[in-house]
Design a protein around this nucleic acid. Structure first.
Lengths: 141, 141
DNA sequence: CTTGACCTTCCCATGATGGGAAGCCCTATC
DNA sequence: GATAGGGCTTCCCATCATGGGAAGGTCAAG
């Protein structure tokens, strides 16, 4: 089938399919005489695997690891679990970070009259930052 | 003071200060005879405001709005609250999304033996995606 | 006079995705 | 046969916020 059908069948856009091929996440497929990419059911299955991994928040790099493990019949499930565990930890860190923001913002918002007057505790907080030097937290590469 | 000092005093890297100037988030500053950027206390204060807004997760676009409101003595606090409320909603949406991922992943991980055997419910889930077409959710622009 | 620490501008990279142009191929319709 | 439309190809650009690094100017201390 052509890339458009593979896209519909997998839920991955044509653009992304080409990109995944370009970065080596998936193998180049066969081509028709017109130079159109041709996809088999197996290849569509791989695309669905990728889409599912992405929907669980795995990066393309992690997805590539999972894909390799999936295709390695002799894999150890411990390796898969390791990838998942790391990802869970990363998600939880980011969730906690955002929850901290929400907590602060809700407090400030609650204290803000939100009417026609100019006084605003939200702006006061932003303006009052007395402690300048905070090492920014780094993400996973 | 020079950009390096302003950076230390505000917690914003020199790179970012120049970038903020380039995109018009902050006004171009005075220059010394050597063409070095010169910063006043007020300008450092603005940089700290930006850093604080960023640390609460506001985008640079939102930060610009907040900055404009901060500098507008006749602002209505309702306008500020509106920006904050939208941002809270966005954060909460993203948190919920990630919590959903964590929930699924924890369940799958829990079911995975994580030893030397190849059987793995995590991979089975990824491979089993029976429902292809899911419209991806869009973020705020 | 050299060294090192600043500063300047300019270009490139990240991650994952979309937009769009220019051009080829095929089919259906007039 | 000509044309219109839709699908495919490659290539380039944009996003968002940030960092890395090169090439070169400036300044102060040794």
């Amino acid at each position: 089938m052509n890339i458009g059908e593979a896209s519909k069948a997998s839920g991955v856009s044509s653009k992304m399919i080409r990109y995944y091929e370009q970065i080596g996440l998936i193998h180049p497929t066969a081509r028709s005489e017109n130079n159109y990419r041709l996809y088999t059911e197996d290849e569509v299955h791989v695309l669905r695997f990728i889409r599912r991994a992405r929907s669980l928040g795995f990066s393309l790099e992690e997805t590539q690891k999972l894909l390799a493990l999936w295709q390695d019949k002799a894999r150890e499930s411990a390796a898969v679990k390791e990838v998942a565990t790391q990802h869970i930890a990363d998600l939880e860190r980011r969730i906690a970070e955002m929850q901290g923001m929400v907590k602060t913002l809700k407090h400030l918002s609650h204290c803000c009259s939100g009417d026609g007057r100019p006084d605003c505790p939200i702006l006061e907080d932003l303006a009052a930052s007395a402690a300048p030097p905070v090492k920014p937290t780094r993400r996973k590469h």
